[in-house]
Design a protein around this nucleic acid. Structure first.
Lengths: 157, 157
DNA sequence: ATACGTGCAAAGTATTTGCAAACGG
DNA sequence: CCGTTTGCAAATACTTTGCACGTAT
C-alpha cells in the first residue's frame, strides 16, 4: 500500500460552509443523522485536499472516532450521489474523495510523479476551454476530471 | 565510419505506424517476441479507442488468438512503461488502454453519463492552458488525464 | 414502532504474482 | 542452452454486500 503526503494551501470558501451545506442537503434529502456519517463529514470538512477511504478510516481512528470501513464507503457514496463530495482518481486504483462546494467552484490536481506531492490549481482559461470543447461536441457538461502528472520543482534534478 | 541520420515525420498517423513503432521500440528495449504480446499489439493497433484488459481478452478470444489475462496485463504494463500505450481511466475502477503515438500527439475523452458513449477530442487551446498551469506551478509536465462527463446530444431529452 | 444507519464478516472485482513449462535468439 | 515469455492458479487490494443489531424520529 502506498501513502502519499498531501500538502496544500486553500484560500476562500471556509470548510465550515461546506459542513453546514452538507448537513442541510442531507436533511433535505430525508437522511437521518448517525455517528458514522457525522464523523466522516466533520473529518472531511477539516481537510484541505482529497483523502482515500482508508485514510479517512485511519484518521478517524486516530481521533478516537472509529468508524467501520464499510460505513465510510457507504457514507461517501451517499455524499457523492448528492454531489457533496467529488471523487478524484490519480490512477493507482485508489479513489479519493474531497468536499465539493456548491456553485461549481472546484480545483484540479497536479501530482508529482516522483515524490507523490499533490498541488491544486484552478484556472478559468482551462475551464473555458473545457466548456467550449464539450459544447462543440454537443455535450451538456456535467463534470470533469483533470489530473496533471509531472516532476515538481523539488524533484527536478 | 559513416553515420546516417534518419529523420521521419509522422503525419496522419495510421495505426500501422504505431504497430511498427511499437515493435521497433520493444526490439530496441531488448524484448523478445512472443505470441501474447504480438496478438495484443496487433489488436490494439486495430482499435480506434481505448479498451480494457478484459475487452482485449475477449476480443482476442473471438479472433481465435486466445491469450491469458495475466499476459495481457503484463504486456500492457510493459507497453505503458515504454510509453507505447496510455492508461485511460473513466472512473469506475476499470483501466483502459490505447495506443500512444510518439511526439506527444494525443486526444482526450468525452463520456456520456447516460448511454456510456465515448467521444474523443483534441484541443490545442486546452493543451496550452494545461502547459501554462503546470509551468506556473513549477512542474515539468509529463502526462495528463482529462475526462469530461456529460450528456451527449442523443441523451439530452 | 419502524425504517434507516452501522459494524462485521463474507463476497466480489480488477489486477498482480509465483511457478513451471514453452519458446526465441 | 539460457533467459524471456506465457498460462494457470493463487494471492492481493480496494470496494461492495448480506445480515443482525442499534438508533433516530
Amino acid at each position: 500500500m502506498m501513502r502519499i503526503a498531501i500538502i496544500l494551501v486553500m484560500t476562500g470558501t471556509s470548510t465550515t460552509d461546506w459542513e453546514e451545506h452538507a448537513r442541510g442537503e442531507l436533511r433535505r434529502a430525508g437522511a437521518r443523522s448517525g455517528g458514522a456519517r457525522d464523523a466522516v463529514i466533520t473529518h472531511l470538512a477539516a481537510q484541505d485536499c482529497c483523502l482515500s477511504a482508508q485514510e479517512l478510516f485511519d484518521g478517524l481512528r486516530v481521533e478516537g472516532r472509529a468508524v467501520g470501513l464499510a460505513s465510510i464507503y457507504r457514507v461517501l457514496e451517499q455524499l457523492a450521489d448528492l454531489r457533496l463530495v467529488h471523487r478524484v482518481d490519480f490512477g493507482h486504483g485508489i479513489t479519493r474523495f474531497e468536499a465539493a462546494y456548491p456553485g461549481g467552484q472546484h480545483h484540479h490536481h497536479l501530482v508529482c510523479a516522483t515524490c507523490g506531492k499533490v498541488d491544486t490549481f484552478d484556472d478559468p482559461g482551462l475551464e473555458r476551454a473545457l466548456s467550449r470543447v464539450a459544447g462543440s461536441h454537443g455535450y451538456a457538461l456535467d463534470d470533469h476530471d483533470v489530473v496533471l502528472h509531472g516532476a515538481c520543482s523539488d524533484c527536478r534534478t
